[in-house]
């Protein structure tokens, strides 16, 4: 197989006497959707936080494209090309779609107005935002200066995914992207995820929704008791296999 784009070895993270990650390994290959499933408390969130820079692991190494990295903040992971769409979306409701898409990486005007007066270049940001939203077929949002709080749940998810897709050059992490959505809106978000994948960006998908996981994922990382139990292929395993593995009702076949 090819070189993994994102690889973690022997990650350990303890919170007091609780070991959330217990010598956990992880690999993401180029161009794939890797689903991460696991029971509540299995350490999925901690694993994702370690990969996205929100948590610093106590032990172990993370490699991005073969180079060792260590992220102190989500910002550093972002600068390295790893974008995360959190379950809470991390959007500011009262700010506009454009403001939200560019939070933390605004474009300034050129010349004196930009360098001395730090003036933002709204025309450029609006054009870029419009372009990215259209690419993902999200332009039924008519006015990109409208506040995010005026959007529906699916549209908000769309904006958050578009933000990640627009800037995430290497890896996109999606945490429960369909958890709060209805059937129709879930469907659109799933299509959106496939759109992003077709553009060659690998995706880590965390979800409790087995049908969605089996529909989208190329491989499924089963997380149990703080470590990777096994990686299964959705084509050769059933949903009940996956559930049995992650709950401990069944042990993985010796590989």
């Amino acid at each position: 197989m090819t070189q993994p784009i994102l690889k973690a070895t022997n990650l350990v993270k303890r919170y007091g006497r609780v070991t959330a990650l217990d010598h956990c390994d992880f690999e993401l290959y180029p161009g794939e959707i890797l689903a991460v499933i696991g029971d509540n408390g299995a350490g999925k969130s901690t694993l994702i936080k370690a990969l996205s820079g929100a948590v610093t692991p106590d032990e172990g190494t993370i490699e991005l494209e073969g180079k060792k990295v260590s992220f102190g903040t989500p910002l550093e992971a972002r600068d390295a090309g790893i974008e995360t769409v959190y379950q809470t979306l991390a959007l500011s409701p009262a700010l506009s779609i454009v403001d939200n898409m560019f939070v933390g990486r605004e474009i300034r005007k050129k010349g004196f107005m930009g360098s001395a007066l730090k003036m933002l270049d709204y025309p450029a940001m609006e054009e870029f935002a419009r372009e990215k939203l259209s690419e993902l077929g999200l332009m039924t949002i008519q006015n990109i200066n409208q506040a995010v709080e005026t959007l529906s749940g699916g549209q908000r998810q769309g904006v958050a995914v578009a933000r990640a897709a627009a800037f995430g050059s290497k890896v996109i992490i999606l945490d429960e992207p369909t958890a709060a959505l209805g059937v129709k809106e879930s469907r659109k978000v799933l299509e959106l995820i496939q759109d992003v994948k077709s553009r060659g960006i690998p995706i880590i998908l965390i979800s409790h929704n087995m049908p969605h996981v089996f529909e989208l994922a190329d491989r499924i990382h089963v997380h149990r008791l703080g470590k990777r139990l096994c990686v299964i292929d959705p084509k050769t395993h059933s949903m009940s296999d996956a559930v049995a593995l992650m709950t401990g009702a069944k042990e993985p076949e010796a590989a």
Partner: peptide, 8 residues
């Protein structure tokens, strides 16, 4: 919280 996660 959202602002923190968004990198501010």
């Amino acid at each position: 919280e959202a602002a923190d996660l968004a990198g501010i």
